[in-house]
Design a protein around this nucleic acid. Structure first.
Length: 295
DNA sequence: GGCCAGGCGCGTA
DNA sequence: TACGCGCATGGC
């Protein structure tokens, strides 16, 4: 089997922050590199001075699919310049200057986040890995590398029983994933059309799917559909906004949602991911209950 | 053993 | 509109 290699030229790119910040769930550290799956290809990535070194099971004549996924052609400085100039935002950007939003495949993103509710990121990664191993297609990988599978298709998960999904540790999320896969398989929504819709229309289409609320819808809009003003509000962001922007005041969720929509600008979702990563890496909870007792 | 995790859906007021 | 609760599962 041939191993295809390329170097994607890019500046201002923090590969570890980008792949490890909880927006995608299929990347693993492998020594100095990261290994994962993009579409139907196994991929190994390594950060180098001139850009990102990429390897896959070849041949590959055109690497645009990977540039699109990694968003290496996006001018990050222009995006960062739109963030609000306040101390929490400056600290968050300083903490991971080259963090990028990926452009993920909508179905994989949607299904992964349906699995995410009240789960830690490590557990979401485990669930997704189990789903891929059980229902995905085996992929070509270099000798000596762990086997890899594609993310299971809508049709395959629609055909899976709830019991089979529960065996992948989905718990109460199993019926949600099953029902959403079946709706999509029946043509009741077309995820590929979401990026061309107005934001509110795309969000409404996602909210019509079982197991999809505002938070998961916004994750799909932001991570897979290119709506960079979509601002997912989860427990980490609630904690971030309360501690960093409203210390000692503990505003309620509707107030925080309004603030998230109005304060962070046209790339608010991008800013959200910086806050999320900052909270998880620089300000991890020192003890249980820290969310309710910021200090 | 209690608490928490990139929530959602449903019942209630 | 805005709570409160149950839902599986695993780590600390």
């Amino acid at each position: 089997m041939t191993l295809a290699r390329a170097t994607l030229a890019v500046e201002n790119y923090d590969l570890a922050a980008t792949l490890g910040c909880g927006q995608a769930f299929r990347w693993r550290r492998a020594g100095p590199a990261w290994e994962g799956v993009v579409g139907s290809r196994w991929v190994r990535l390594r950060q180098e001075r001139v850009g990102l070194c990429a390897e896959t099971a070849g041949p590959v004549s055109d690497w645009q699919w990977l540039r699109d996924y990694l968003q290496t052609e996006v001018d990050l400085r222009q995006i960062l310049a739109t963030f609000p100039d306040d101390p929490p935002m400056r600290r968050s950007v300083e903490a991971c200057r080259g963090l990028r939003l990926l452009r993920q495949e909508p179905w994989e993103c949607l299904a992964s986040f349906i699995c995410s509710s009240t789960k830690r990121i490590v557990q979401i990664e485990q669930i997704v890995a189990l789903l891929c191993r059980r229902f995905g297609q085996p992929l070509a990988v270099p000798a000596g590398t762990e086997p890899a599978w594609s993310f299971p298709s809508v049709e395959r998960l629609a055909a899976a029983t709830e019991a089979e999904l529960r065996q992948c540790k989905l718990g109460f999320r199993a019926p949600y994933l099953s029902a959403t896969a079946r709706k999509l398989a029946a043509g009741e929504a077309v995820l590929g059309r979401l990026p061309e819709m107005p934001l509110e229309e795309a969000r409404a289409a996602l909210l019509a799917l079982p197991g999809v609320g505002v938070k998961i819808a916004d994750c799909v809009l932001l991570f897979a559909c290119g709506f960079q003003e979509a601002f997912p509000v989860d427990v980490w962001i609630i904690k971030a906004l309360r501690e960093l922007y409203f210390p000692g005041r503990r505003p309620k969720l509707p107030r925080l949602r309004h603030f998230s929509r109005t304060h962070f600008g046209p790339h608010g979702g991008y800013a959200q991911q910086y806050l999320f990563h900052y909270m998880r890496t620089q300000r991890p909870p020192s003890k249980a209950g820290a969310i309710d007792h910021p200090g």
